[in-house]
């Protein structure tokens, strides 16, 4: 399993939200990215939280800088709506791109992008909000807008369209540090074969076991506790080793 540091960005700043709302400025995203690389993050996710609102992704410069001295994979998301947008992001140094709003509006884009760049480079970002027991609605625009899509139907459809991975964010848990929505993770991993990244709610080391062993997640995306230095990447990795999870060996 992989331990991923998630960096939500607005303009030039790393920000942190609760339930994807109430943005708080944390600082320069590149400083955080470098620190997480040095501390042993397995991957980084850069998400432009307001991109689809303005129809553009403003992460190009941030990614180009990150490429200079960070030698782990980056996923970049926000506002990608065409082959051309995708090309620009890959040319800036992204290894994978993630789509949410624009994929919901035009699911076929997933198929076009997977064929051109390979499934392994296309991540479906799902913002899920609990509706009732075992039911979740798909949200877009960084959790601001509800759609009529059901999460389970949507991930199955997206897998058929060729995506290679799912970034599954619980809008309810995001930023709360109260633990992952394990039912959500489990429900999604039960119906897809592609790897699933659990996101939203990581607050204590025990959350790792629930997400991976019960939920079946292949990776966890962590933001809050890293940004606020509440838990270190080293502690998370040591916990994963203790749980006998198949995790990267990292020697500083």
């Amino acid at each position: 399993m992989r331990i991923i540091a998630r960096l939500d960005v607005k303009g030039p700043n790393l920000i942190k939200s609760i339930n994807l709302e109430g943005l708080r400025v944390m600082g320069n995203p590149n400083d955080f990215a470098k620190k997480y690389y040095r501390d042993g993050a397995d991957e980084l996710i850069f998400m432009d939280l307001v991109a689809s609102l303005y129809n553009r992704n403003s992460l190009h410069e941030i990614i180009k800088l990150a490429c200079e001295d960070i030698f782990i994979p980056f996923t970049v998301g926000g506002g990608i709506r065409s082959l051309d947008d995708a090309l620009k992001i890959f040319d800036s140094g992204a290894d994978k791109i993630s789509l949410n709003t624009n994929a919901v509006q035009n699911p076929n884009i997933l198929s076009i992008l997977s064929k051109r760049f390979g499934s392994q480079a296309i991540v479906l970002s799902v913002e899920a909000k609990k509706k009732q027991k075992e039911k979740w609605d798909v949200y877009v625009e960084s959790g601001r807008e509800k759609t009529d899509l059901d999460v389970i139907d949507w991930v199955k459809q997206a897998q058929d369209l060729g995506i290679g991975e799912i970034l599954l964010t619980s809008v309810d848990q995001e930023g709360t540090t109260e633990g992952f929505d394990v039912d959500l993770i489990k429900s999604v991993t039960n119906v897809v074969d592609v790897p699933v990244i659990a996101s939203g709610g990581f607050g204590k080391l025990d959350d790792l076991e629930k997400a991976v062993k019960i939920g079946g997640a292949d990776a966890v995306a962590i933001a809050h506790v890293l940004h606020y230095e509440k838990i270190s990447l080293r502690d998370i990795r040591n916990k994963a080793i203790e749980l006998n999870l198949d995790v990267r060996k990292f020697n500083q």
Binding site: R2, E165, D193, D218, R248
Partner: peptide, 18 residues
Amino acid sequence: DKHLKNKKIKIPHINWSN
């Protein structure tokens, strides 16, 4: 091989492996 020993195998293989 996805169906090796009837175990569900995640594809793609995305991981740090030894």
